[in-house]
Design a protein around this nucleic acid. Sequence first.
RNA 1: UCAGUUGGCCAGAUGGUCGCUGUAAGGCUGUUAUGGCUUUAGAGAGGAAAGUCCGAGCAUCUAAAGAACAGAGUGCAAGUUAACGGCUUGUGGAGGCAACUUCAAGGAAAGUGCAACAGAAAUAGACUGCCCCGCCCCGUGCGGAGCGAUGAUGGAAAGGUGGAGUAAGAGCCCACCGAGCGAUUGGCAACAACCGCUGCAAUGUAAACCCCACUCGAUGCAAGGUUAAGUUUGGACAAAUGUGCGUUCUUUCACGUCCAACAAAAACACCGCUUGAACUUGCUGGCGACAGCAAGUCUGGAUAGAUGACCAUCCAAAACAGAACUCGGCUUAUAGACCAACUGUAAAC
RNA 2: GCGCCUGUGGUGAAAUGGAUAUCACGACGGUCUACGGAACCGUUAUUCCGGGUUCGAGUCCCAGCAGACGCA
Length: 109
Amino acid sequence: MDHRLKKNSQFNYIYKKGEKVHTENFTLFVVRSKFSCYKIGFSISKKLGKANKRNKLKRRMREIVRNLQVPSFCNYVLLAKENATNLEFCDLKKEIEKIFEKVEKKLNV
RNA sequence: UCAGUUGGCCAGAUGGUCGCUGUAAGGCUGUUAUGGCUUUAGAGAGGAAAGUCCGAGCAUCUAAAGAACAGAGUGCAAGUUAACGGCUUGUGGAGGCAACUUCAAGGAAAGUGCAACAGAAAUAGACUGCCCCGCCCCGUGCGGAGCGAUGAUGGAAAGGUGGAGUAAGAGCCCACCGAGCGAUUGGCAACAACCGCUGCAAUGUAAACCCCACUCGAUGCAAGGUUAAGUUUGGACAAAUGUGCGUUCUUUCACGUCCAACAAAAACACCGCUUGAACUUGCUGGCGACAGCAAGUCUGGAUAGAUGACCAUCCAAAACAGAACUCGGCUUAUAGACCAACUGUAAAC
RNA sequence: GCGCCUGUGGUGAAAUGGAUAUCACGACGGUCUACGGAACCGUUAUUCCGGGUUCGAGUCCCAGCAGACGCA
């Protein structure tokens, strides 16, 4: 299944309407949807580094999300903050797992 | 040995598990239609992919040629290339003991502008001064003739050094060096060598305007096209004295042209899109850049944008860094390792 | 991807190739005052970085860095 977010309008919708969840190096925007499959988009700004670094970070994030069980019926945008490029793979994994735990709590409440 | 110069080459490798994007063949399935899922095979970032500083292909602007003007660029010679502001080999200047490096290197007697401060004076006259003669009130004076050496400065002061010469001096004369002009020889040429002549007039700046020679249409794949479906409505000019790649003119050729409004937009679509001035190996020609011939190879094509994660071994995996239409250069960033050729003031043997 | 423009004290600006880079506001220090304000005096610059042309560069040329803008 294809879990990517693609259109600019979708991104903007999620930025406006979504609920925010923060950790040190990431911010997650969440919006509920009708469809059973979730969709997720990754956002890494030019401030974080050159194309090389940004690309690598994005791949790692995607790899981590692929192996996780993400709560469905939702759309997400995962936004990286400045220190994220310097982290090891393990640390990234822990943080992203944390952030999704937080989200589940919020949704259940 | 040490120190250095130049050129070239590599840019982690191997194995395993999971995952991503095309291609080819097969299977299952679905739509009005481009499809979706899956199996097997095989492929999948760079030397700079970067900066966007040059040059081309390709596409559109209705087509083509010439002249003048405007604008932009280039500037030693010969070669090389599809082309270039690139590259190669030379010439000249500058640097280095040397190997070698480096230079936007045409024109300042076509014209215009600028040259602060300092200095007597900044492109050429005056002033200061030197020497001789005359006059008088005999001086720190005046007049006349000759001279261009001296004058603290400055980036630059009217060829330089030495001699001869003179009342004092001066390319006035001589030697050497420099400069200009001409001939001869060598070189395709830039230019060099040597000989002769000219006593020497000519400040710097053209990366100030400018002059000379040569080159150049504009816009960039967000170009442009397909699916595509508009004989739509209104306005302006108007069958040529109109429009058609900066302006004007000439010749041929073609044709109605322009503006606004509305309609339409499936879309997660397709073409352009990757076989190319391609790459690898060998041979031949050339000092070299490069060219020719033969054989072999197919080697990314994404579109929120594909290369990642983990484990093992190699001491350690640690540089700069990610294709976005494609090539040829230039410039900038860059850990570490290797190869070849060459140089030496110095030290040791 | 492509095109275009700008960099001067803390901020906003000026400077024809020519002496120690000027002005306003701000900040800091001082004078004045019992204290403060105003006033006066002073301090605050690697002209984004590196080369070149020139006697001399903030200015001219080349290359780099940073920022901003336009084309959907």
